[in-house]
């Protein structure tokens, strides 16, 4: 069996901001969906300071549990070369947002329909982070192999806290006390 050694990872650096974020990157939910939820939070470093130059990506199942995804997250305009935004109908399952000057991010999406304990997969990039980090924002607690394998304190870092108006708070701590659980899929 062939095995090709991988291309090494590198930091996203400080200057991705004019290249990777795109308009509507956090609007994963199609327009006019009354079942849309908001997932938001802050990214902190090991000193507890907000990280204003992180890039956060999201991937999830649709409400029916499908992980097929759909193209069109960053639909382009062939006339101007700019961005058209999503088509307002398709659910692509993918989102990407930079943190703001307060280290805050927010996405509006649909509740994932699978697996049994629903979660949104999160991938964090930042200046100073040589290799991205995966975590999960669980929207509920329940019987889940990963959650079950963690101590209550560690498990708590993966549970998005419900807030009013179908909003869930999910902070990401890169280091230090209450450091978020990051995942290895290798």
């Amino acid at each position: 069996m062939t095995y090709l050694p991988p291309t090494p990872s590198h930091t996203v650096g400080p200057f991705y901001g004019y290249a990777l974020p795109f308009p509507g990157g956090g609007d994963i939910a199609p327009r006019e969906r009354s079942d849309a939820i908001t997932l938001h939070g802050y990214v902190y470093d090991g000193a507890g300071e907000p990280v204003p130059d992180a890039l956060v990506e999201f991937w999830q199942a649709d409400p029916g549990g499908s992980v097929a995804g759909a193209p069109g997250s960053m639909r382009r305009d062939p006339v101007t070369g700019g961005f058209l935004g999503r088509d307002g109908v398709a659910f692509t399952g993918f989102g990407r947002v930079p943190t703001d000057a307060d280290g805050h991010y927010a996405v509006r999406t649909l509740p994932p329909g699978a697996p049994t304990v629903p979660y949104i997969s999160v991938c964090v990039f930042a200046r100073g982070l040589t290799h991205h980090l995966f975590t999960r924002a669980y929207l509920a607690e329940g019987p889940d192999a990963l959650l079950a394998s963690l101590t209550p304190e560690r498990r708590a870092t993966l549970i998005a806290r419900p807030e009013p108006h179908r909003t869930h708070r999910f902070d990401i701590r890169l280091q230090g006390e209450e450091e978020t659980v990051f995942l290895d899929f290798a």
Binding site: A47, G128, L129, Q175, E179, V181, F182, D184
Partner: peptide
């Protein structure tokens, strides 16, 4: 320095 986790990654 301040942007790497100190806990090991958790295998899924």
């Amino acid at each position: 320095l301040l942007r790497h986790p100190k806990q090991p990654l958790v295998a899924v």
